[in-house]
């Protein structure tokens, strides 16, 4: 079938092996292959749904909403971090968006960043305290995993396959330039087909999000270096930026959940 990179959506399971934005689980493969290996032309994205059509539909819609929301949140998270680095007020609530962003002073992610920067800016001989060092170490590991994932996801072909109750209902091959070929089971019902189309949508939206996140982390790291008066170099700025951005995305998502419940 496929020897290359493989991502599996695992709903609603979350854990350390999840991708940066919490949608896909990276599947380790046998042999010498490792995620991030650039040898493969095809990346397999598997969506394994339940046999019950209605429940699977609910799950997919929920996941799709989450991934689309994240797509919109990402630039806002970048803006928020940038505003913080420029010592500006929180960017105003974006009226056209269906989410709010936290005030700078209310953001744990920015508070942590502030702590980092204060340590870095202190013109004295010091070492990182255990807690900060541990967080930096964790951020570095997560960023490491993310860069491997994004490198894999940029293969020439993305193949998305959807199974429901163990039965393969559709497979789509998407070339980098956008050509799409889909293979269906004959006599497929329109609702089943819709599930697979949603799998494709989720895959491609995730890929766009990852690309945006990678760009955002790079840019934010550069801004962080520029904003710090001393002490912060590239090798720490990248994990710090990654951690801050992904945490801000999570904070904004959580804030929206709270607001949704309030409504």
């Amino acid at each position: 079938m496929n020897d290359g990179p493989r991502f599996t959506v695992t709903v609603p399971e979350e854990g350390a092996s999840m991708d940066a934005l919490g949608f896909w689980r990276t599947v380790p493969l046998d042999g010498s292959y490792a995620v991030g290996d650039d040898r493969y032309d095809t990346t397999l994205w598997e969506v394994d749904l339940l046999q019950e059509l209605g429940l699977s539909k609910q799950i997919m819609e929920m996941e799709l909403e989450r991934v689309h929301l994240t797509q919109h949140i990402l630039p806002a998270a970048g803006d928020l971090m940038h505003a913080y680095l420029l010592n500006e007020q929180t960017p105003r609530k974006m009226e056209d968006e269906n989410f709010s962003i936290p005030a700078v002073e209310d953001s744990p992610a920015l508070a942590e960043l502030s702590e980092w920067m204060m340590l870095a800016d202190a013109e004295m001989d010091f070492s990182l305290t255990g807690d900060i060092e541990e967080k930096l170490r964790q951020a570095a590991s997560e960023l490491d995993a993310f860069t491997a994932q994004i490198r894999s996801s940029l293969s020439q072909m993305a193949v998305v396959q959807t199974t429901a109750g163990g039965r393969l209902i559709g497979a789509t091959r998407v070339a980098w330039l956008g050509n799409v070929s889909t293979r269906w089971q004959p006599g497929l019902e329109i609702e089943q087909a819709a599930l697979h189309r949603q799998s494709v949508e989720m895959t491609l939206t995730t890929r766009h999000c990852w690309i945006r996140l990678a760009g955002l982390v790079s840019v934010s790291a550069t801004r962080l270096i520029a904003a710090a008066s001393s002490g912060i170099g590239l090798v720490t700025a990248l994990p710090m930026a990654y951690r801050t951005i992904t945490q801000l995305v999570q904070e904004i998502r959580t804030l929206r959940q709270v607001q949704s419940r309030a409504v």
Partner: peptide, 12 residues
């Protein structure tokens, strides 16, 4: 721009 930044990192 990254490269212009001193890679001497703080205390890591």
């Amino acid at each position: 721009r990254y490269e212009d930044v001193d890679v001497e990192e703080f205390g890591i």
